[in-house]
């Protein structure tokens, strides 16, 4: 007797969420099975790779390996975003508003928003704006961004329990998507989606950020919480968790010590560039297997590897 495939029964599917506008708008979600389990369900919209840019020159913080591909554009967010799209095939741009960090440069919200707007106006792919996770500052910055880029259908992040009312309202008012961010916990993720719903944010405008730990720095926690969110969504009819997920992962991977050690500092860890790229690409694979729909990545070589992986798996 021939072996018959053993199939999981699914009772739900992930909602479709569209980022951006026009030809280059990107739809994610719609999946009715565990990620890449296409032998028993649909995966109409494969996961997407977004690339990050910073709104300040990151030279002082980045390793040579990470800087090298962007050497000519690191101080110019607009050129940087274009390079990601034109040269490296970024399908989404994520602007990290690092310049706003109250513990560092603390640039005023209006100035931050002006730079964001410049980038948004000069690219045609969807844009996600990622704040510093400081509630007061993010509220100021995101309000200014939401207004300056009214109708551009950005996604604003992270929207947390402590600032969802303010940032959620700004998203509602100016037509942007909410990235609902909670600290590695199924119940908190669900709770925040309920709160956003009560505020009037529609499910088709919510993406979950489950919080990302990098390889060797909490990745296993992100992996398991994502698997649990996904199981609740797909097999336990938990409607409040049926949202696509995004992982701001390049930033986590590249801040780890092992991704930054030079060949002199760590002769036993091999080629520093390949090591960092491998750490980033592997983290991406693990997150994809756990259910990520949008990966925010940094190094073009890692982006290429991961796109190749996705292409083989769909």
């Amino acid at each position: 007797m021939a072996f018959e495939l053993i199939k999981q029964k699914y009772t739900g599917s992930i909602r479709k969420v569209t980022l951006g506008l026009g030809d280059k708008a990107v739809t994610v979600g719609g999946r009715s099975a565990f990620p890449f389990y296409t032998f028993e369900g649909e995966m109409p919209h494969p996961p997407r790779v977004a690339m990050e840019i910073w709104d300040k020159d990151p030279s002082a913080e980045w390793s040579d390996a990470a800087k090298e591909p962007f050497q000519d554009v690191l101080a110019d967010p607009v050129a940087w975003a274009k390079k990601c799209i034109d040269d490296y095939g970024a399908e989404i741009i994520v602007i990290q508003t690092k310049s706003a960090d109250p513990n560092a440069d603390n640039k005023p919200a209006q100035e931050v928003a002006a730079v964001v707007k410049k980038v948004v106006d000069s690219v045609d792919v969807p844009v996600v704006v990622w704040g510093t996770a400081n509630h007061e500052k993010d509220t100021e910055v995101m309000r200014a961004v939401a207004e300056a880029c009214a109708g551009k259908h950005l996604a604003l992040s992270p929207v947390e329990e402590g600032d969802y009312k303010q940032i959620g309202a700004a998203c509602l008012g100016y037509g942007h998507t909410v990235v609902a961010s909670s600290p590695i916990d199924v119940n908190l993720a669900k709770q925040l989606n309920i709160l956003l719903g009560n505020l009037g944010v529609k499910p088709e405008n919510i993406i979950i950020d489950p919080t990302t730990g990098g390889l060797g720095y909490g990745l296993e926690y992100s992996y398991s919480v994502m698997e649990r969110i996904m199981q609740a969504a797909l097999t336990q009819q938990d409607e409040k968790l049926q949202q696509p997920m995004i992982n701001n992962m390049g930033n986590e991977v590249w801040k780890s010590k092992e991704a930054n050690l030079t060949a002199d500092e760590a002769p036993d860890l091999g080629d520093p560039k390949k090591r960092g790229v491998m750490m980033e690409a592997l983290t991406a694979v693990v997150l994809l297997l756990a259910g990520s729909d949008v990966l925010v990545m940094r190094h073009p070589d890692a982006v290429k590897l991961v796109k190749g992986f996705i292409a083989q798996m769909v």
Binding site: G216, R275, L282, V286
Partner: peptide, 15 residues
């Protein structure tokens, strides 16, 4: 090669 093996061993440890 350590640049490939080391990240994999960390992944294995995590999982």
């Amino acid at each position: 090669q350590p640049e490939v093996l080391f990240p994999l061993l960390i992944e294995r440890l995590n999982i």
